[in-house]
Structures are given as C-alpha cells and as structure tokens.
Design a protein around this nucleic acid. Structure first.
Ligand code: FES
Ligand code: FES
Lengths: 160, 160
DNA sequence: TTATAGTTGACTAAAGTAGTAGGGAATTAG
DNA sequence: CTAATTCCCTACTACTTTAGTCAACTATAA
C-alpha cells in the first residue's frame, strides 16, 4: 500500500474542480496555478481520472475538465484508486498466498486494516470536503492570492 | 505514507517471536526458516527494532532475540514505526506547510486519515494477535511444516 | 577453541515517484 | 481562415526506496 504525493495531488485537484466549478470546465493551467502542481504532471493524473470516468474533458479555448458526476457521488477512495493502483495493505493482494503459496501469519491483520482505510475514505465525498470549514478557509485564501497575482500581472503589463 | 513488505515482515517476525517464545531467545535463523524471510534482511530489521527498544538480544550459541516487553504492551503501530519511519499520511509531516509554505486544501483530510490508521494499529497488540484463531491456525501449520522438514533432513542425512 | 549467533557497513538490481520535454489533435475566438 | 488554447500522448530522466546480498567482526556458550 502506498499513499504518496500522486494520490494527494489527485484528490487536491479534484477538490479544486469541485470548489471552482460553476458548470463551466476548469483548465488544468488554472488548477496548476492555484494548487502549485506541475501542469505536465496534472495532465498525467487527469488522463487516468478520465479513463476511470471521474472527469470529462472539453477541448479548445475555454475548455478544461468537469466532474462527470455530482460531487456527492465521488468519494476519496475512488480518486486514489484511479491514480494509485490500490489502497490494499496486504502483500498477497487478497489472495492469501504470500507465504510460499500459503496464507501468512499476518494476512488477516492487513485485510482488516485495508477494510478500515477503505471504509474511511469511502465515507468522504468531494461534497463533504467542500462543506468543511477548514477547506473553505484554505480555498478562500487561495482565491485571494490568485486575485492579487492577477492584479500584479495587470499592473506589470500596463507599466511596461 | 507507505506500508510495504518491510513493515509487514517486521510485524510477522515480531509475532513469530511472541508465538514461539518460551522465555528463551529465538534466533533469526529460526524465524527466517519459519516465515521464509531472508536472514540478512531480518538482521537489518531487528537492528532497528533493537534500537527502538522493542527487542533485546542475546549473543552466542543458544542466543537470539526476545521481546523486551510483554506481548500485551507492544502494539503493531510501534513495530511499523520502528522500521518504517512513520505511518503519517500527510505530505507536510504535520506542520501544515506543503502548499508554498501555507496549509494545503487536503491537509486535514490526511491528518484525519493518519489518526484513523494510527488508532487502529495502536489498538492491536502482539498478544491480541496471538489470541486470534486465524493466527493460531497458521502458526500450527507452520510448526507442522517445520517438523516435517526436520524429519526429511534427518532421513536425508541418515541415508547419505 | 570452535561453532554459533548477533552487529555492522557497503553494495546492488529493480521498481516507483515526481517530474520534464515535446509533439500532436481538437476546438473556438477573433 | 487562422492562430491561440487546451487536452492528449509518448518518451525520457533524476532520484529515492525496497528488498535484498555479501563480507567482516564481536561476543559467548559448550
Ligand atoms: S498478506 Fe495475504 S497471505 Fe500474506
Ligand atoms: S499535507 Fe499538510 S499542508 Fe499539505
């Protein structure tokens, strides 16, 4: 089992999508700016998210990505699964044969742990995250920062 | 966060120790045979387990490792921590600064997840595992296999 | 004194992570 | 129409970690 920047980026980007969607598509460039994630890397992640049917894409100017379902119907577990293979904690992948073809001493422990994690991450939807106070606060800060950056760019362009 | 063979081996080996300890030390060679884990790799893992004070060692013939505490007082979380750095799911390591020095959108989510996993793995002691039926069954099978192997070796030695 | 068993450090192949680079192909604003 | 925008795809790379191997050394019990 692993949970690395890859899965975290994916969840963060999907949450950004849920927060900023006003039924128009959001470009990866926007997400990249707001969440400080490399654009090329986002493209790789969204390729997988699209393959799993979590987002749909619109090409061309004004295009980008949209959630392909309601934010209530997308849970964190799905997102991590989509980019990250799995959140399975066993060595055998559930087949119970990692100790010379036989079940190992700790198999059931890792199964229980996997269940535990999966239940937890399945119980959290994007909508649930959007509703959280701490998430809203961070999102507002990011919007303020983005506005300021745009103002600075404008002044810079005007002054030059 | 990661949970790989490393942490799983460590827990399996510690559980083997708890199962087979009759207040005499168990050699890594025994554990290696029973659990099918490379001896040299076990040495590395037990070096860390000893540094964390989870086991104590006895050198020389008849030596080996013993649990340095009661099996009730050693939980799975500790063992994984000892060999695996941490089971922290955040990117920032808890300091809340992974998005350009600021807290990121999903920080609290990963904190909650970390708590969840840590609570679960802390609630399980080696003694708790030893008491489980599925663990006892696997252990008994391993003991039968080891006995048979010893018999075969004996016959092989006698016949040659 | 010798075989046993822990202790330590250096080394390695393979895999995965977190990207970068660069070319396409669709679409639409101008 | 055309040029800019945006997604799409493949290949490449530096780096880290994993899961080991190997070899030399130290303590100790029989
Ligand atoms: S983890 Fe499933 S058999 Fe070992
Ligand atoms: S994970 Fe803690 S700030 Fe991003």
């Amino acid at each position: 089992m692993r949970l690395t920047t890859k899965g975290r980026y994916a969840v963060t980007a999907m949450l950004d999508l849920a927060l900023n969607a006003e039924n128009k598509p959001i470009s990866l460039a926007d997400i990249s700016r707001r969440q400080d994630i490399s654009l090329s890397y986002l493209e790789q992640l969204f390729s997988k998210l699209r393959q799993q049917g979590l987002v749909s894409s619109v090409r061309g100017p004004g295009g980008g990505y949209k959630l392909s379902r309601d934010a209530e119907a997308i849970c964190v577990a799905e997102i991590i699964d989509a980019v990250n293979e799995s959140i399975d904690a066993t060595n055998c992948g559930g087949s119970g044969n990692c100790s010379d073809g036989q079940i190992c001493l700790t198999h059931h422990l890792w199964c229980d742990l996997s269940d535990q994690i999966h239940q937890f991450l399945s119980s959290i939807s994007l909508a649930g995250l959007v509703a959280r106070n701490d998430v809203r606060e961070v999102a507002e800060r990011q919007n303020r920062e983005r506005d300021r950056e745009q103002t600075l760019e404008f002044i810079g362009a005007g002054g030059a």
